[in-house]
Amino acid sequence: MPDFYGEKISSSLLLGTAQYPSPKVLAEAVKMSGAEILTVSLRRESSSGGSSGKFWELIRDLNVKVLPNTAGCHSVKEAVTTAKMARELFGTDWIKLEVIGHHDSLQPDVFGLVEAARILSEDGFKVFPYTTEDIVVGEKLLEAGCKVLMPWCAPIGSAKGPVNPDALKAYRAHFPDVPLVVDAGLGRPSHAAQVMEFGFDAVLLNTAVAKAGDPVAMVEAFSRAIAAGHLAYKAQPLEPRDMAVPSTPVIGMAVFE
């Protein structure tokens, strides 16, 4: 089970809180998912950034750990300011760091991300960086003080699932001891099962659940898929091969080869 900055978490599902039909549906989805960590966005969900409104109360009432994020921030300065506001508002030094490079593709600006991660880590934050699957960027983030990495598997909200599975497997192999969370791009439970089979520690979901026809049923499907994928990873699945292998030993027959 994942260990984020020394905190053991028993659920491999992290859930975002935006875009649900109502707070009631959000609360039901959280309950169904068993998620222990919820991400909340300061910029996207509240206009003045610092207002602690009823929505935050509702989230606090769910009794889960809050992972505030810097969604919508396009510069290092903006992300750092937002992180500090979040620390004050939620009383946590956890921060999901997003520095967006392009407002349309929502691709992370990995240069700004590394810089912001360094500034925040030095300031005592525990940074969860939303990054690409680039291994070198991952190394720079670790050097900057991150102890968790959160690569995307496809663009935010695209629901495409792992578009580059080999890169994700290489990422896992390269960072065997770093908690890895797939953040962004998952659309279906099978996608989540797939990345958990690769050995990722957790997945972060929002749109795929919130905008499903029935978010509560969808999050249930996801949590089962995540459990299945994780179990499969631990059970060491077979590697694919090019040739058929008979499942029944063929004894006593001559084999010419």
Binding site: S47, S51, G53, K54, F55, G72
Partner: peptide, 14 residues
């Protein structure tokens, strides 16, 4: 649709 009770002027982003 923003989860906030701030009724101040429209933001640049919006």
């Amino acid at each position: 649709m923003i989860e906030s009770d701030d009724d101040g002027p429209i933001s640049v982003r919006s």
